[in-house]
């Protein structure tokens, strides 16, 4: 039987949606166990993990796991018996996965859009080269570590869900040479974080710095606000909103690009989205090449009208 350890992502004690997506995927590969780094989860969080199929919640009370080598040691101790380890692909978990792989001999694929077992080996799917190619990779080693992108599996509770047993894992974390001397929490906006959002509405230079309309549309669609690099460089909106190859990679069901030209760096971070919509004054802008629905026009005319129509439809 394949044991699949899922590193749970949690914020303020709550399990995030990508963690539930990962547990859903884990069930298709084998028996999921959840790994929780930090002080023990509240009863409702542990119960939720059980509902999504975790048979155990293994808690490593390693509050100071911000350094990759320590987090990897904690995850390693809690996943020693696992054939597959799933993490949510982020810059931080990629480092944890790398350290764990070096300690265990596991092969790693990050930014995967899915995984399955073929003849006892894990095979993953990835979209690469700004989502113009699909790649299937086989992990040959006995242990496999996979970084999964949010929004690539539809989270669903397990049919025959039991209660997950909470288990404490004791581990001596290694000393590190690096010291984190200052941590300043980034104020989290309301609503869903960009990487996890089912809908992203992004504004670029074409907004001229006015994010009111972009924000209104995002809120109406239950989504998050994104931005291009030019907009964050201008200081119109904070860096955390930047979508692209060097910013956040997003794969929402719907991506709206307003006043964004569609430079290759930007496309690399959003081209794998389900449906892509753009609003741009310039009919030659490259963003039209990858849009399912493109409007040549001003976002200042188009967005208010679209918002009014959606509200009218919902009221009807």
């Amino acid at each position: 039987m394949t044991t699949v350890a899922v590193l749970v992502d949690h914020r303020d004690g709550a399990v995030t949606r990508p963690s539930l997506e990962a547990l859903t995927l884990a069930r298709t590969l084998g028996t999921p166990v959840a790994v929780w780094l930090g002080s023990a989860p509240a009863a409702d969080a542990a119960a939720l993990l059980g509902e999504y199929g975790a048979t155990e919640v293994r808690v490593v009370d390693a509050a100071d796991a911000r350094v990759a080598s320590r987090a990897a040691a904690a995850l390693g101790a809690a996943s020693a018996d696992a054939d597959v380890v799933l993490v949510i692909s982020t810059f931080v978990t990629k480092e944890i996965a790398t350290r764990l792989a070096l300690a265990t001999g596991a092969g790693v694929v990050v930014d995967a859009a899915g995984a399955e077992l073929v003849d006892g080996k894990v095979e993953t799917f990835q979209t690469v080269f700004a989502a113009t190619w699909d790649v299937r990779t086989r992990i040959e080693s006995d242990k496999a570590i996979v970084g999964i992108r949010p929004n690539t599996t539809i989270a669903a509770p397990a049919e025959a869900a039991g209660a997950a047993t909470v288990v404490d894992v004791e581990v001596e974390l290694p000393a590190t040479r690096e010291r984190i001397t200052h941590v300043e929490a980034v104020e989290q906006g309301e609503g869903v974080p960009l990487a996890e959002a089912p809908v992203v509405v992004s504004g670029g230079r074409g907004t001229g710095g006015d994010y009111a309309l972009v924000t209104e549309l995002a809120e109406l669609l239950g989504g998050a606000v994104g931005a291009s690099r030019d907009a964050t460089d201008e200081g119109w909106i904070s860096h955390e909103h930047m979508v692209g190859q060097t910013g956040t990679t997003v794969t929402p069901a719907l991506y709206v690009a307003a006043g964004i030209s569609g430079a290759v760096h930007h496309r690399g971070g959003m081209q794998a989205s389900g449906t892509i919509v753009c609003i741009n004054m310039d009919p030659e802008a490259p963003i039209f090449e990858i849009s399912d629905f493109g409007v040549v026009g001003s976002l200042f005319d188009v967005i208010p009208q679209a918002v009014a129509r959606i509200k009218e439809h919902r009221g009807a």
Binding site: G107, W133, D134, T137, I290, S291, V295, V302, A306, V307
Partner: peptide, 29 residues
Amino acid sequence: RTVVVDASPRPAKENRVKITDTGDAGTQL
């Protein structure tokens, strides 16, 4: 530890729509 077993270009999207705003593009969107 990992080997690429298949790589294929993604098919181009079908049924793409591009319209020019003549006053009702927001509604159409």
